[in-house]
Amino acid sequence: TDCSIVSFLARLGCSSCLDYFTTQGLTTIYQIEHYSMDDLASLKIPEQFRHAIWKGILDHRQLHEF
C-alpha cells in the first residue's frame, strides 16, 4: 500500500493539512507513526483535524505491530 502522507491524509479526509507535514520534510507515514497528540499540535495542525489524524496514526500502528 501507499505509505505517503499524501494518501494517508486523503484517506482520512484531511488533505488540507498536507502543508503542515511537508514544510517539516515529512513525506511518509513511517516518519510520523510514533507521533503523539502533542507532536501534531506542535505542527500547528488545526484541532478539528488533529483527532482524525491521531486516530489514523493509531490505526496504522495497530496494522503494523507484529
Score class of each variant (00 low, 15 high):
residue 35 Y to L: 10
residue 8 F to E: 01
residue 60 H to E: 07
residue 58 L to S: 14
residue 20 Y to L: 10
residue 1 T to I: 14
residue 2 D to G: 06
residue 40 L to P: 01
residue 57 I to V: 07
residue 26 L to F: 06
residue 47 E to M: 10
residue 17 C to W: 02
residue 33 E to L: 09
residue 54 W to F: 06
residue 64 H to P: 12
residue 9 L to K: 00
residue 48 Q to K: 13
residue 14 C to Y: 08
residue 2 D to K: 06
residue 3 C to E: 10
residue 16 S to K: 05
residue 16 S to F: 06
residue 29 I to G: 01
residue 43 L to V: 05
residue 2 D to M: 05
residue 18 L to E: 13
residue 31 Q to L: 02
residue 63 L to R: 10
residue 17 C to F: 03
residue 29 I to T: 10
residue 46 P to C: 02
residue 37 M to C: 07
residue 30 Y to T: 14
residue 10 A to Q: 05
residue 61 R to T: 09
residue 16 S to Q: 09
residue 33 E to P: 01
residue 22 T to R: 10
residue 19 D to N: 15
residue 46 P to N: 03
residue 64 H to Q: 15
residue 8 F to Q: 01
residue 36 S to C: 11
residue 50 R to M: 14
residue 52 A to D: 08
residue 55 K to Y: 07
residue 46 P to W: 00
residue 63 L to N: 10
residue 28 T to V: 06
residue 8 F to I: 03
residue 14 C to G: 03
residue 2 D to P: 05
residue 62 Q to I: 05
residue 15 S to R: 09
residue 38 D to E: 15
residue 39 D to M: 07
residue 30 Y to N: 10
residue 37 M to H: 11
residue 30 Y to L: 10
residue 65 E to I: 06
residue 41 A to S: 10
residue 20 Y to V: 06
residue 47 E to V: 13
residue 39 D to V: 03
residue 37 M to P: 13
residue 39 D to G: 04
residue 43 L to E: 02
residue 21 F to E: 00
residue 3 C to R: 09
residue 12 L to C: 07
residue 1 T to V: 09
residue 14 C to N: 03
residue 7 S to Y: 09
residue 28 T to S: 11
residue 32 I to Y: 00
residue 3 C to V: 05
residue 60 H to Y: 13
residue 28 T to H: 09
residue 8 F to V: 04
residue 20 Y to H: 10
residue 43 L to F: 04
residue 60 H to R: 15
residue 66 F to V: 15
residue 31 Q to E: 11
residue 53 I to Y: 01
residue 33 E to M: 11
residue 15 S to T: 14
residue 39 D to A: 06
residue 12 L to I: 15
residue 17 C to P: 01
residue 34 H to L: 06
residue 26 L to C: 04
residue 55 K to L: 09
residue 28 T to N: 07
residue 61 R to G: 08
residue 7 S to V: 09
residue 12 L to D: 01
residue 38 D to K: 11
residue 1 T to D: 11
residue 12 L to Q: 08
residue 14 C to K: 05
residue 14 C to I: 08
residue 64 H to T: 15
residue 21 F to D: 00
residue 56 G to L: 01
residue 39 D to I: 02
residue 14 C to M: 13
residue 28 T to D: 12
residue 3 C to D: 10
residue 37 M to A: 09
residue 9 L to V: 02
residue 3 C to K: 08
residue 8 F to R: 00
residue 34 H to K: 13
residue 23 T to F: 06
residue 65 E to H: 08
residue 35 Y to T: 03
residue 61 R to I: 09
residue 53 I to G: 00
residue 49 F to A: 11
residue 19 D to Y: 06
residue 24 Q to A: 12
residue 51 H to I: 07
residue 56 G to Q: 03
residue 36 S to L: 04
residue 27 T to S: 12
residue 41 A to T: 12
residue 20 Y to W: 06
residue 43 L to K: 03
residue 47 E to I: 10
residue 46 P to F: 01
residue 42 S to W: 06
residue 33 E to A: 10
residue 54 W to H: 03
residue 52 A to I: 09
residue 22 T to S: 11
residue 55 K to Q: 11
residue 31 Q to C: 05
residue 46 P to Q: 03
residue 41 A to N: 12
residue 31 Q to N: 05
residue 64 H to N: 14
residue 44 K to L: 08
residue 25 G to A: 06
residue 49 F to G: 04
residue 12 L to H: 06
residue 14 C to F: 06
residue 38 D to M: 15
residue 10 A to R: 08
residue 23 T to K: 14
residue 22 T to C: 04
residue 5 I to H: 02
residue 55 K to W: 04
residue 36 S to E: 13
residue 35 Y to E: 01
residue 24 Q to I: 08
residue 63 L to W: 09
residue 54 W to N: 11
residue 4 S to Y: 04
residue 24 Q to T: 09
residue 35 Y to M: 15
residue 57 I to D: 00
residue 27 T to E: 10
residue 8 F to K: 00
residue 20 Y to M: 12
residue 16 S to H: 09
residue 33 E to Y: 06
residue 32 I to H: 01
residue 8 F to N: 01
residue 11 R to G: 08
residue 34 H to Y: 07
residue 59 D to P: 04
residue 56 G to K: 02
residue 43 L to R: 03
residue 8 F to A: 02
residue 34 H to E: 14
residue 12 L to P: 01
residue 55 K to N: 11
residue 41 A to D: 11
residue 3 C to T: 13
residue 4 S to Q: 07
residue 11 R to Y: 04
residue 47 E to P: 14
residue 65 E to M: 07
residue 6 V to S: 15
residue 12 L to G: 02
residue 44 K to D: 13
residue 8 F to S: 01
residue 53 I to C: 02
residue 36 S to G: 12
residue 15 S to V: 08
residue 25 G to Q: 06
residue 15 S to Y: 06
residue 27 T to K: 11
residue 15 S to L: 09
residue 47 E to Y: 14
residue 56 G to A: 08
residue 52 A to P: 10
residue 62 Q to D: 11
residue 10 A to N: 05
residue 50 R to E: 05
residue 43 L to W: 03
residue 5 I to L: 14
residue 9 L to Y: 01
residue 10 A to T: 05
residue 59 D to A: 14
residue 57 I to N: 01
residue 20 Y to C: 07
residue 10 A to I: 04
residue 32 I to A: 02
residue 39 D to T: 05
residue 22 T to F: 06
residue 43 L to P: 02
residue 59 D to M: 08
residue 32 I to W: 01
residue 26 L to W: 02
residue 46 P to M: 00
residue 24 Q to R: 12
residue 35 Y to I: 03
residue 61 R to P: 12
residue 61 R to C: 08
residue 26 L to K: 05
residue 13 G to F: 02
residue 43 L to Y: 02
residue 43 L to N: 02
residue 32 I to E: 00
residue 47 E to L: 12
residue 66 F to M: 15
residue 33 E to S: 09
residue 37 M to K: 11
residue 51 H to W: 09
residue 64 H to G: 11
residue 9 L to G: 02
residue 43 L to I: 11
residue 50 R to N: 04
residue 23 T to I: 08
residue 31 Q to G: 03
residue 51 H to A: 12
residue 57 I to G: 01
residue 58 L to V: 14
residue 57 I to F: 04
residue 55 K to H: 06
residue 36 S to T: 12
residue 1 T to N: 10
residue 1 T to H: 03
residue 31 Q to H: 10
residue 25 G to S: 09
residue 54 W to S: 09
residue 21 F to S: 01
residue 64 H to R: 13
residue 20 Y to F: 13
residue 62 Q to P: 05
residue 4 S to M: 09
residue 16 S to T: 08
residue 38 D to G: 12
residue 39 D to Y: 02
residue 11 R to A: 09
residue 59 D to K: 09
residue 59 D to E: 14
residue 65 E to F: 05
residue 41 A to W: 06
residue 50 R to I: 15
residue 63 L to S: 15
residue 13 G to L: 02
residue 56 G to D: 02
residue 4 S to C: 04
residue 45 I to N: 00
residue 26 L to H: 04
residue 20 Y to D: 04
residue 10 A to G: 06
residue 60 H to K: 08
residue 8 F to G: 00
residue 31 Q to T: 03
residue 46 P to T: 02
residue 65 E to L: 07
residue 4 S to P: 04
residue 50 R to H: 11
residue 51 H to G: 12
residue 49 F to D: 12
residue 58 L to W: 10
residue 7 S to W: 05
residue 27 T to R: 09
residue 2 D to N: 09
residue 57 I to T: 03
residue 8 F to C: 02
residue 61 R to W: 06
residue 58 L to M: 09
residue 33 E to T: 10
residue 9 L to M: 03
residue 42 S to Q: 14
residue 29 I to E: 03
residue 44 K to Q: 13
residue 40 L to E: 00
residue 48 Q to C: 08
residue 56 G to I: 01
residue 23 T to S: 11
residue 26 L to G: 00
residue 25 G to M: 03
residue 61 R to K: 15
residue 34 H to M: 10
residue 29 I to D: 03
residue 35 Y to P: 00
residue 59 D to F: 07
residue 52 A to K: 12
residue 53 I to Q: 00
residue 33 E to N: 06
residue 53 I to H: 01
residue 54 W to R: 05
residue 15 S to A: 10
residue 7 S to K: 12
residue 48 Q to M: 12
residue 2 D to F: 04
residue 4 S to H: 06
residue 55 K to E: 13
residue 57 I to W: 01
residue 45 I to W: 00
residue 21 F to H: 00
residue 44 K to V: 04
residue 60 H to T: 12
residue 51 H to C: 11
residue 47 E to N: 13
residue 2 D to L: 03
residue 36 S to D: 11
residue 42 S to I: 15
residue 45 I to G: 01
residue 49 F to R: 06
residue 37 M to N: 05
residue 23 T to E: 13
residue 6 V to C: 06
residue 58 L to F: 11
residue 7 S to E: 12
residue 25 G to W: 01
residue 22 T to I: 12
residue 6 V to G: 11
residue 23 T to D: 12
residue 23 T to L: 11
residue 14 C to Q: 04
residue 60 H to W: 13
residue 56 G to P: 00
residue 28 T to F: 09
residue 1 T to S: 10
residue 43 L to S: 03
residue 27 T to I: 08
residue 4 S to L: 11
residue 51 H to K: 13
residue 33 E to I: 05
residue 35 Y to A: 05
residue 59 D to S: 10
residue 20 Y to E: 05
residue 15 S to H: 11
residue 10 A to P: 00
residue 27 T to H: 14
residue 51 H to L: 11
residue 61 R to M: 08
residue 30 Y to S: 15
residue 30 Y to D: 15
residue 49 F to P: 09
residue 42 S to F: 14
residue 60 H to D: 05
residue 47 E to S: 12
residue 64 H to M: 14
residue 6 V to L: 14
residue 17 C to M: 12
residue 16 S to A: 11
residue 25 G to I: 00
residue 40 L to D: 01
residue 49 F to I: 04
residue 57 I to Y: 00
residue 27 T to A: 06
residue 3 C to I: 11
residue 35 Y to H: 06
residue 10 A to V: 05
residue 1 T to W: 10
residue 20 Y to T: 08
residue 33 E to Q: 15
residue 65 E to Q: 15
residue 2 D to T: 04
residue 7 S to N: 14
residue 38 D to S: 11
residue 34 H to F: 06
residue 40 L to T: 00
residue 29 I to L: 12
residue 40 L to C: 02
residue 30 Y to I: 10
residue 38 D to C: 07
residue 48 Q to N: 14
residue 42 S to D: 15
residue 9 L to T: 00
residue 58 L to H: 11
residue 49 F to C: 10
residue 31 Q to D: 13
residue 29 I to Q: 03
residue 52 A to E: 12
residue 1 T to Y: 08
residue 50 R to D: 01
residue 30 Y to C: 15
residue 34 H to D: 14
residue 7 S to H: 08
residue 57 I to L: 12
residue 12 L to A: 08
residue 12 L to M: 10
residue 32 I to R: 00
residue 2 D to S: 06
residue 21 F to R: 00
residue 17 C to T: 07
residue 62 Q to S: 12
residue 49 F to Q: 12
residue 29 I to F: 15
residue 61 R to Y: 04
residue 4 S to A: 03
residue 36 S to K: 09
residue 62 Q to H: 13
residue 56 G to W: 01
residue 10 A to Y: 04
residue 23 T to R: 12
